[in-house]
């Protein structure tokens, strides 16, 4: 099986690259993208946006055509992994004029800036958009510290 997610990384020899990836995928680091380095995630599918809302982080990814059961969402410490696979439909009686949509298996790892309360992670999928709500671990939440004054 070829892997279009990888071919699309502006690689001029798509077919060759896909063959290499099939065999040596891990060498290219796609199954576990190196995180923490600037630009290391360039071209990783799916792309991820993360923002902060009070005591939670929300991570969002566009995964059109996928059902929740085709997605695997893993949180370990401060690392979020989105995994899945979209099967390639190949029908003999069809002529393809364009094929731009991706297929194949994918894995995307992002490092979050804070520790996550992994027991309370929630995910929802709507119109091809996956939103993962990641509550901050209690240790990562800002605490209001009362400063006692000794003024009289």
């Amino acid at each position: 099986m070829t892997n279009r997610w990888l071919v699309r990384r502006s690689y001029p020899f798509g077919q060759l690259r896909s063959e290499l990836d099939r065999t040596f995928g891990d060498l290219y680091g796609w199954s576990r993208a190196p995180v923490g380095r600037a630009g290391a995630r360039r071209g990783t599918y799916p792309a991820v946006n993360v923002w902060e809302e009070d005591d939670v982080l929300r991570a969002e990814a566009e995964v059109p055509g996928l059902k929740m059961e085709q997605l695997e969402i893993l949180v370990q410490g401060d690392e979020l992994t989105l995994k899945g696979e979209r099967e390639m439909e190949n029908r003999e009686e069809v002529t393809y004029h364009r094929r731009e949509r991706g297929f194949g298996s994918f894995s995307s790892v992002v490092r979050l800036p804070v520790e996550i309360d992994v027991d309370n992670v929630e995910a929802r999928l709507e119109d091809g958009v996956l939103t993962v709500t990641l509550p901050k671990a209690p240790s990562a939440r800002p605490r209001k510290i009362e400063v006692k004054t000794s003024n009289h």
Partner: peptide, 22 residues
């Protein structure tokens, strides 16, 4: 949007990814 365009015997089929649209 990314698209696939397929030609079938009796129709053209345009499959477009527009995640987030209602």
């Amino acid at each position: 949007p990314l698209v696939d365009i397929e030609e079938h015997a009796d129709e053209l089929r345009v499959i477009a990814e527009v995640p987030g649209a209602k």
